[in-house]
Design a protein around this nucleic acid. Structure first.
Lengths: 220, 220
DNA sequence: GTCTATAAATAGATAGAC
DNA sequence: GTCTATCTATTTATAGAC
């Protein structure tokens, strides 16, 4: 592989190089997995010799770990509910589910590397996936599950285990992203904008869990 | 790794050994990926020396390819709609979606190896995932999409792009399986039987796409 | 059909000059 | 901070005896 980042090939500040190597490693790990990526490839992509890598990281594992630790390299895991806080406040069900799905879909599209890295990490049994799961996924289930429970108490949603609903909904858009990134990059099976997808998924889910008497709020 | 299959460590018939190696390789590839699995590990698991592998397969790539080609090694991709043919015939919507989901969930559970192998294959860009996609996934979208279209013409389902519905539904149970196999083996987030999961997913989806006037057929 | 021994290639890691 | 050269271990693959 050629250089991934433009470099002047001149001496670089320590932290800068370290961060660059970290980013490049993350990109390559996401493409070929940890075991499938050689330190030589990382070095070539950065335009330096292998030795430079081992000056910054005592071994390959530490390089991997630094992707987890180092802030500059870590994924900006912003609160996915921050952007739809007002919808939650207003109990705008469609706004909540649509916003969440669209948010995720756009995120996945912009950062397909991260999704791939997570999959590789999960398959390889590395810590990265576990940490992400413990911190992020658990939070989403708790938060969205609590919202659903509240709406059930309001009588707006029918009685279903909230976590099953969360599982079903996340499944829709995560699987959609996985399809686009992994198996069907040309979108031969289904070509649809993120907005449309988020809309349809939210619509299906809400109609699926709303109470018969209540009316689905929709911006349609 | 220790021997995966019980062996007598005696001489084995050519085809038998070939098939055994193929199965073992498939298992190990599913756990650690193609690059992450050494021929030595495969040999050890089979209780033979590495040389035996290269007597049967000219190189590691051919071993991988044989998983695709060789019938004995290939996954028994039975028609997922065969078992619910009567439900389809009778237009028993709940039966169709419930049966399909339960079928898939049970299948994934029994053959987690296959799911993992597919993921590794897709991530590594190998043919295995592409062939599976072209043959199997495309068929499911066509078939289930056609069923949904028919039910829309019957006035039973509302007007939504059928493939979006298929994507949403497959997403539910595939993501559920992926969760159980990859991230949440102890099912800390959500512990639920396949029957319950299939039931809830089918219920959510059907309520989500049924026409207001029609009534959801449910075995509940 | 299986083994031991070994070649050839690759990957991870280090030493020391600049 | 970077390089070249080199070392060691691992991995793929082959040769030839049984």
């Amino acid at each position: 592989m050629d250089k991934f980042f433009e470099t002047t090939n001149t001496r670089m500040a320590g932290d800068e190089r370290r961060e660059q190597l970290c980013k490049i490693a993350m990109h390559l790990f996401s493409e070929r997995g940890f075991r499938g990526t050689t330190t030589k490839e990382i070095a070539n992509a950065a335009g330096v010799s292998e030795a430079v890598i081992f000056k910054h990281f005592s071994n390959k594992d530490e390089l991997y770990a630094s992707i987890l630790d180092h802030k500059a390299c870590s994924h900006p895991l912003s609160d996915p509910f921050a952007e739809i806080a007002d919808k939650i406040e207003q109990k705008d069900d469609f706004g909540v589910f649509y916003g969440m799905a669209l948010n995720a879909l756009n995120h996945h599209k912009d950062d397909a590397d991260f999704l791939r890295l997570m999959l590789h990490s999960a398959l390889e049994g590395h810590d990265l996936a576990r940490v992400f799961f413990d911190n992020f996924i658990t939070y989403i289930y708790d938060f969205l599950g609590a919202y659903i429970r509240r709406r059930q108490e309001d009588g707006a949603f029918r009685e279903v285990e909230p976590r099953v609903v969360v599982r079903a909904f996340i499944g829709m858009f995560v699987h959609h992203s996985l399809n686009n990134i992994l198996w069907d990059k040309e979108q031969k099976l289904l070509k649809i904008s993120n907005e449309e997808a988020a809309h349809e998924f939210a619509e299906i889910l809400l109609r699926g869990i709303k109470n018969k008497k209540a009316k689905v709020k929709s911006k349609k």
